[in-house]
Design a protein around this nucleic acid. Structure first.
Lengths: 199, 199
DNA sequence: ACGATAATCAACGCTTTGTCCATTATGATA
DNA sequence: TATCATAATGGACAAAGCGTTGATTATCGT
């Protein structure tokens, strides 16, 4: 962290990263080649190998950065506050911050979560949601007799909320993070049926 | 369809397909090579090209077959019967049939829906669920004022149910199709909160 | 200004690809 | 069963990408 001050490395890394994003957007992840990336970045092919082992390694590093940031923000979520805010029909600030972080990486996420992206990334995100949010909620309940196995309930809620977020991202992030947070909280707290206004 | 009676073609196709599944299971989709497949299948590499354009094309054909079958079964789902069965706490036969079809292709689905699989396949499946089941349900409701945009409600319910199915597949299909159908119908009809037994 | 090191350039052997061809083996059919 | 059609084989081809190397040049930090 301390000795990454050489501008030459930064410049080529930025160039490579920019080229990667462009190429992924144009042709998807499939058949993405080192030659392509370095050519597009106007960087010698050999130089690529001074920074990354291969294409997969490069993409992995970017994914790791984003996952790290998201994990930190999720860790700070307080379930009690979350429920309180939901009851009061206000948006929980921690959730807004989380969604803002997603928005910040919108271009990459849209691709990596899209049809030509990396399913493993989405699964890791889902696992985070379970770990930090829904897992805690369910375990908090006194272990009553569930009508369905707890693991399936977790799969349900986690997928549902993840689905909302990916829909937002894939449909072009037309709502503000605050609006998305409100949608999420309403469905989370009141359930989908109530959101349908059927009660 | 009528002129596919040459056993030679069938045999090599089967061999190639078997080899593909084995290799995917061992090394994932990444770096899957024509040479690998034909070698494993004990088939001349040139012969591969008599049947498929490349690896991607081969996988696509298998995906298409499964999607075709699933689509047909979904098309036959009758929402009214589905709701009736849910109310009576019985399992809707059409849904069981659907899940049985998934079970039949379990080995392939587990890989294609897994972390190294093809995200596009899952998205297509989700789109089918929306089209055949949840889309109809929501559009059936008189268009009341939803508390959240309808598209997000669809994203929620579709992802949720898809999440249950994938969890079942990824965790090794330990429940019978009938059991999964019951889990699905309970959560669908009563909502996740009721499934938690919190009412 | 100088030493360190990042980036370049050219070349290497290697693997896979997709496409040939002539030849052999096998299935369908009369 | 004999015959014709065609599926599969084996071998070769150029093209492309890979990962690495060594000598050289350019740029950075101090």
């Amino acid at each position: 962290m301390a000795d990454k001050i050489d501008r030459r490395q930064l410049k080529t890394k930025q160039a490579l990263r920019k080229a990667l994003m462009e190429l992924i957007e144009e042709k998807g992840m499939e058949g993405l080649t080192v030659t392509d990336i370095s050519t597009r970045a106007d960087v010698n092919r050999g130089t690529f190998y001074l920074h990354y082992r291969d294409v997969h390694d490069m993409v992995s590093q970017i994914k790791a950065e984003i996952l790290e940031a998201v994990d930190q923000l999720m860790q700070q979520v307080d379930i009690y506050e979350l429920r309180m805010c939901a009851a009061k029909e206000t948006t929980y600030p921690g959730m807004v911050r989380l969604i803002e972080e997603l928005e910040r990486n919108g271009d990459f996420l849209k691709i990596i979560l899209g049809p030509k992206g990396d399913p493993g990334f989405g699964m890791t995100l889902k696992a985070m949601i379970t770990k930090h949010i829904w897992g805690k909620m369910v375990s908090h309940q006194a272990m009553k007799e569930f009508l369905v196995p707890a693991e399936y309930l977790l799969a349900y809620t986690t997928s549902a909320n993840f689905g909302i977020l990916t829909h937002w991202i894939e449909s072009g992030m037309k709502q503000t993070p605050t609006e998305v947070a409100r949608i999420l909280m309403r469905i989370i707290y009141h359930g989908p049926m109530h959101a349908l206004n059927l009660d």
